[in-house]
Simulated scan of single mutants.
Amino acid sequence: MSHFLIREIQTKDNQQVAAVIRTVLTEFGAPKVGTAYEDKALDDMCETYNTDTSAYFVVVDKDRVIGGGGVSSLAGEVGVCEIQKMYFLEEARGKGLGKKMMETCMQKAKELGFKRCYIETLPYMTSAMRLYEKLGFEYIEGPMGTTGHYSCDVWMIKEL
């Protein structure tokens, strides 16, 4: 795993990150409406996450982005952040990078002063849900905040 690097996103990564996210969503047959696929922020991720309450990280393999994940304040909630747009190309899966990315995001969330961390996903993202469970996330009955991702119908929360 030594040749994989997790670092904060840079402007030069924007196009590759958008491609990774759309590739993975398409691979899993996710709806293009009501998910991250249609988010305007997808094509401008570096600038979108360049705030006092958010950060986005990429996994790089020899200058090529193969995954990413971010943390940002959850719109409509106080003291709650959301893990956002965490996707990995097939070649990056099963190598512990998801766990490392989650730990990176949750550490940043604590540094930013958040008390709880929220995730929403799709029911067939089973590997991701297993990871979230292992990291202490618990299922909740309904969505929090105003993400606009009405097609995501699995919600989880964790105390930081």
Rank of each mutant, 00 (worst) to 15 (best):
Arg64His: 09
Gln16Ser: 14
Met129Phe: 00
Thr26Gln: 12
Lys62Gln: 15
Arg116Asp: 11
Asp61His: 11
Tyr56Cys: 09
Thr146Tyr: 06
Pro123Gly: 08
Glu103Lys: 14
Met156Glu: 10
Gly76Arg: 03
Val71Ser: 11
Glu27Gln: 13
Pro123Asn: 11
Cys46Lys: 14
Tyr150Met: 10
Tyr132Gln: 11
Ser151Gln: 10
Ser73Val: 11
Gly136Thr: 04
Glu77Asn: 06
Leu122Glu: 09
Phe28Arg: 05
Met86Ala: 15
Ile140Trp: 01
Glu133Leu: 07
Tyr87Asp: 05
Gly113Ile: 02
Arg7Asp: 04
Tyr87His: 08
Cys46Gln: 15
Gly136Leu: 02
Glu77Val: 08
Gly98Leu: 07
Met101Cys: 09
Thr23Leu: 06
Cys81Gly: 07
Leu122Gly: 12
Val154Asp: 08
Lys95Val: 04
Pro143Lys: 15
Ala41Ile: 06
Ile66Ala: 04
Lys99His: 05
Leu160Thr: 03
Gly148Ala: 08
Thr23Trp: 00
Asp153Gly: 09
Pro143Cys: 11
Tyr132Arg: 08
Val59Ser: 09
Val59Met: 02
Ala128Pro: 02
Gly29His: 02
Val60Leu: 13
Gly145Met: 02
Arg7Leu: 02
Lys99Glu: 15
Val78Met: 11
Cys81Val: 06
Leu42Arg: 08
Gly67Arg: 08
Glu82Asn: 10
Ile9Ala: 11
Asp153Glu: 12
Leu89Lys: 03
Gly29Thr: 03
Ser2Lys: 14
Gly145Leu: 01
Ile140Val: 10
Glu103Asn: 11
Met156Phe: 00
Lys95Tyr: 03
Ser151Glu: 14
Cys152Phe: 01
Thr53Phe: 02
Met1Tyr: 03
Glu77Asp: 01
Tyr150Leu: 11
Gly145Tyr: 00
Glu141Cys: 10
Phe88Asp: 08
Ile66Glu: 05
Ile6Ser: 09
Phe4Gln: 07
Gly70Gln: 02
Ser151Arg: 11
Asp43Cys: 04
Thr126Asp: 10
Thr48Pro: 02
Gly96Thr: 07
Ala128Ser: 12
Gln10Leu: 13
Met45Trp: 00
Lys85Ser: 08
Thr48Glu: 12
Thr147Glu: 09
Gly96Ser: 07
Cys46Gly: 07
Ala92Leu: 04
Tyr150Phe: 12
Thr147Met: 07
Gly98Met: 04
Val20Cys: 09
Cys81Ile: 04
Gly69Arg: 06
Val58Lys: 07
Met129Thr: 06
Lys12Gln: 14
Phe114His: 03
Glu159Gly: 03
Met144Asn: 10
Leu5Thr: 12
Phe137Gln: 07
Thr11Gly: 12
Thr11Cys: 10
Gln10Arg: 14
Met86Ile: 07
Asn14Gln: 05
Gly67Trp: 01
Gly76Phe: 00
Thr35Val: 03
Tyr139Arg: 15
Ala109Val: 01
Phe28Pro: 03
Leu5Ala: 13
Ala55Gly: 12
Arg116Lys: 15
Ala41Arg: 13
Gly76Tyr: 01
Ile140Gly: 05
Ser2Pro: 03
Lys115Tyr: 01
Ile9Asn: 04
Gly145Asp: 05
Phe114Lys: 09
Thr147Trp: 00
Lys110Arg: 15
Gly34Lys: 06
Phe114Ser: 12
Lys110Pro: 01
Gly29Trp: 01
Met125Ala: 14
Glu120Trp: 00
Leu131Asn: 04
Glu77Trp: 00
Pro123Met: 07
Gly113Lys: 06
